[in-house]
Write a protein that binds this DNA or RNA. Structure first.
Lengths: 340, 340
DNA sequence: TACCGTGGATGAAACGATTCAATAAATAGG
DNA sequence: CCTATTTATTGAATCGTTTCATCCACGGTA
C-alpha cells in the first residue's frame, strides 16, 4: 500500500542515478544519444524505482495527445461496437488509444462528451452524429480539433467523413423483397432527424416506384431500438389482415428483432410466410434471431479503421485535404425473407 | 480553420481582460471570491475568445484525474456493455468520465490497457480480470492506483471487489433443468482460467449430486463466444443419439446462442424438445434468440454502478476499508427449457 | 602548444493550469 | 487621523515532462 505516497518522477530517477533530468529523458526518448554506461545505470534505476512516465505532463508539453475520442449514438447497438473495434485496432497500430463516449441516443450526452474530449485535448474526435445540428461540432472544429464524421456524409467541406450509401442500401433491401413477390411493403424507422432513416427510406421509395402494384407504407418509430421495434410490431400485428403489409423493411436490425419478437408473440403472424422481414447492419445477432434475419451488411470494422486513418492523416499531413469516403452496402439473405 | 494556431490559454484571457492569471483561475474555480465587474469582464472575454480549460494542465497540477479506466474482457459481449453503462452513469453523477479498454479476450491487450491507464494517471481502474495472474494488477496497486476487481472476488484484501455468486448461479441453472425432468446434463464452457467457468461448473456439479440418475458431462470451449458455442454445438449434434445429453447448461448466453445455431442448422435437434438449453447473463438478445433462451440474470448495471462508487470511496475516504460486495443471480425461464 | 570539432551531459525554459503568500485597497473602529 | 481588519488582486512557485542552447572534456590537426 502506498496510498498518498507521491509517485516516482523523472527527478527521482535522475537523483538516484546521479545524472541530470535531461539525460533520463533522453534515455527514454532517444537512447542512442546517451552513452552506454549511463543508459544502463538509468534503465536499472527506472526498474528499481518502478518509474512510469507521466503521460499527463508529457502531453502538456507536447500540446498533442495520443488519444482519440469516439462518440457513438448508442453503445448497446453492436454495429457501433464493431466500429469501435475497428477504430481501436487501427489506433493501436499507431500507438494511440481510443476512448469511447456513449451518447445513449441523447443529444445532450453527445454534447457532454464533446466538451469532455475538448477539455482533454484529444488528438481528434470521431463522431456518429445524431442530428443535423452542426453547431457544437463546428465549434470543436474552429478550436482546432479535427473532427471526422462517421457514418454520415459531410455536406460542408470542413470535415472528413465516411459513410455507407444508405440510399443504395434501402434500394437493395426493398428490391429484394419485391423480387420474392412481396408488394405491400412497410418501412419501420425513426426519428427522421437521423439521416440513416431518411436515406434508407428514400432508397426504399425508389425501389418501389415503377413496380406495378407495389406500395410503401411508413411506420415511424421514436428510436432504433428493440423496444421500439416491438411496439410497432404490436401495432402491425393488430391491423386487420387485409390492411397488413406482406413485407417489412426495418431501418436497423435492432428494430427488426423487436418486430420479430412481437410477431412471434402474436403467433398469428409467421415470418416469412405471412410477413417477410429484412433489417439493416447485419449485426452478429441477426443470424441467431428467432428467424435468421436477412439484412444489409455494412463494413463496420473497416469504417472504424478508416476513420482513425483519416484522422491521422488530417493531424499529421499539412497537405491534408478533407475526403469523403463512401462504402457500398451488401445484401445478406437469410430465412426471414424466403419466398412464401 | 485554425490549424496550427495555438489554442487560447488562460494567459490570453488574462491579458485581454487586463487581469492577472490568478484572477481568471478564480473566476473559473471560486467565482464568489472575485468582484462583480471583473467576473463579468473575464467571463465575457472567455466567451469571445472561446477559451476551453486545458484539462491536461489541470490534472498535472492536481496530480489526480477525473477519469476512470475500465478494462473489460470482451466488449462484444453485451453483458460487459451493460456493466459499462452502469459505470458511466455513476461516473457522470460524480463529474467523472469512464474510458473503456477492450481486452478482446487477450491477456496481452489487458496488460496494454493497464499500462496505458497507468501512464494516463487515471483515478482508478475497474477490471474484469481474465486470468488468475495478479502480478500486473498488484503492480498497479503498489504504485498507488486503486483497483477494483469487477465480477470476481478478491482473495487478498488488497482490493475492493464485487461479484455475483456464480456457484449459486450454476446451481440454479442445473436445478431448474433437473426440475423439468432432464437428467443427462452437459456443461459447455471454458477456458478454465476463467473463474466464472469454474464456479458455474462447480454449482452445476453440486446440483447434480445426490439426484439419482443425474449426470454432468463437460464440454470445454476455448472462449465464451458465439463461434465456440457453434463449434461445440456441432460436436454435440454429431453424437449418436443415445450418448447425447438431454439438457445443456452454457457458461454464458453467447455460447448458448452458438449452440442454438448449431442445433437449428442440424434440424434434427429441436430445442427444447430434444435438448433443453439454458445460458448465463440474460443479455437482451437472449429474449430474441431462435428459441427464447432461459438464462441466469446478473445485475450488470448495478455492478458497474457499484464499482464506480467503491472506487470513489477508496480514493476519497482516508478511512476506506476494502469491501467485497456480493450479488445474487436470478433464474429467468423462457421457452428453451420448457418441459418436454 | 594552440585551436577546433565533437559527442555527451547539463540546466533552464516552457507547456497551462492551481494555489498561496504577499500586497494593495477599502472599510471599520477608536 | 491613524491603526486594525477585511477583501480583492497579484505574482511566483509548482506539477513532470521535453527541448534546446550551453558547456565540457577529449582527441586530432596544424
Amino acid at each position: 500500500m502506498n496510498r498518498g505516497r507521491p509517485p516516482v518522477s523523472i527527478k527521482d530517477v535522475a537523483r538516484h542515478a546521479n545524472v541530470s533530468i535531461g539525460t533520463v529523458s533522453n534515455v527514454l526518448n532517444r537512447p542512442e544519444m546517451v552513452s552506454e554506461d549511463r543508459r544502463r545505470r538509468v534503465t536499472q534505476v527506472i526498474e528499481e524505482l518502478g518509474y512510469v512516465r507521466n503521460d499527463v505532463a508529457r502531453q502538456l508539453k507536447a500540446g498533442q495527445s495520443l488519444t482519440v475520442g469516439l462518440v457513438v449514438q448508442d453503445s448497446a447497438n453492436p454495429f457501433y461496437n464493431e466500429i469501435a473495434l475497428g477504430a481501436e485496432a487501427a489506433a493501436e497500430k499507431l500507438g494511440q488509444a481510443v476512448i469511447l463516449g456513449n451518447a445513449g441516443l441523447s443529444p445532450a450526452r453527445e454534447g457532454l462528451y464533446l466538451d469532455l474530449f475538448q477539455e482533454q485535448r484529444v488528438r481528434g474526435v470521431l463522431i456518429t452524429p445524431q442530428s443535423a445540428d452542426r453547431a457544437r461540432i463546428d465549434t470543436l472544429r474552429s478550436r482546432g480539433i479535427p473532427v471526422i464524421l462517421v457514418d454520415e456524409h459531410a455536406s460542408s467541406s470542413l470535415y472528413c467523413s465516411l459513410a455507407v450509401d444508405d440510399i443504395e442500401g434501402g434500394r437493395l433491401a426493398v428490391e429484394h423483397l419485391l423480387s420474392t413477390g412481396r408488394r405491400r411493403i412497410a418501412f419501420v424507422g425513426g426519428p427522421d432527424s437521423l439521416h440513416q432513416v431518411r436515406d434508407r427510406r428514400t432508397g426504399a421509395r425508389r425501389a418501389v416506384q415503377g413496380v406495378p402494384g407495389a406500395s410503401l407504407e411508413d411506420f415511424a418509430s421514436e428510436a432504433l431500438t428493440v423496444l421500439e421495434g416491438r411496439r410497432i410490431g404490436e401495432q402491425i400485428a393488430d391491423l386487420p389482415q387485409d390492411r397488413r403489409p406482406d413485407a417489412v423493411f426495418a431501418a436497423n436490425d435492432l428494430v427488426a428483432i423487436g418486430l420479430l419478437q412481437a410477431f412471434a408473440f402474436h403467433r398469428r403472424i409467421r415470418v416469412p410466410e405471412d410477413i417477410a422481414l429484412i433489417g439493416y447492419d447485419d449485426i452478429d445477432f441477426a443470424t441467431s434471431a428467432i428467424v435468421p434475419l436477412s439484412s444489409i451488411r455494412q463494413p463496420a470494422r473497416l469504417i472504424g479503421r478508416t476513420a482513425v486513418e483519416l484522422l491521422e492523416d488530417e493531424s499529421t499531413d499539412p497537405e491534408h485535404r478533407h475526403r469523403h469516403v463512401s462504402f457500398q452496402p451488401e445484401l445478406v439473405v437469410r430465412d426471414s425473407t424466403a419466398a412464401p
